[in-house]
């Protein structure tokens, strides 16, 4: 069951990072937590509704989001502002959208809710499961977390 949605989400993240940013994403540690809490500075939460329900929280370190948006825009980004969070929110939205296409092909009828941005560590998102699955993802420009609370 867990693999049914974890694998499409990971594959979508890898595909999107690869085509847009020329970055490979590899899986690091996988752990379970009791709360859906942001683990890094720049966070995007995307709600999932339908056959699967819950939230996916992307947690990125500040340096990494600035690097990504600098790479895409060719402009210097000094801080996490609305431009940066909006660009990253759309990136997370695209990843979840692609994952959803795979889930729909696998007979899970789901939809996603537009991204919400949370700045800072320790921000809490409402959970729909007792435990949260946190996957650490590694790239050449930094590590980020995918926190998944879906049932």
């Amino acid at each position: 069951m867990q693999a049914d949605y974890v694998n499409p989400i990971f594959k979508a993240a890898n595909d999107v990072f690869n085509s847009m940013l020329q970055l490979e994403v590899s899986r690091g540690d996988l752990e379970t937590n009791d709360n859906l809490v942001s683990t890094k500075e720049a966070n995007i939460s995307i709600g999932v509704t339908g056959d699967l329900n819950g939230s996916i929280l992307f947690s990125f370190p500040e340096d990494m989001v600035l690097d990504i948006v600098e790479g895409m825009s060719g402009m210097e980004m000094k801080e996490i502002d609305t431009f940066v969070t909006s660009a990253m929110g759309e990136l997370a939205n695209i990843i979840c959208g692609n994952a959803l296409t795979t889930l729909n092909e696998n007979n899970y009828n789901c939809d996603i809710v537009p991204p919400q941005v949370l700045i800072g560590k320790g921000q809490t998102v409402a959970m729909s499961t007792e435990q949260v699955l946190t996957i650490n993802l590694e790239t050449d420009i930094g590590e980020f977390d995918l926190n998944i609370s879906i049932s």
Partner: peptide, 13 residues
Amino acid sequence: MEFSGKLLTWLIH
């Protein structure tokens, strides 16, 4: 700012 950030990501994607 919000529109511009989204536009940039969307177009590259």
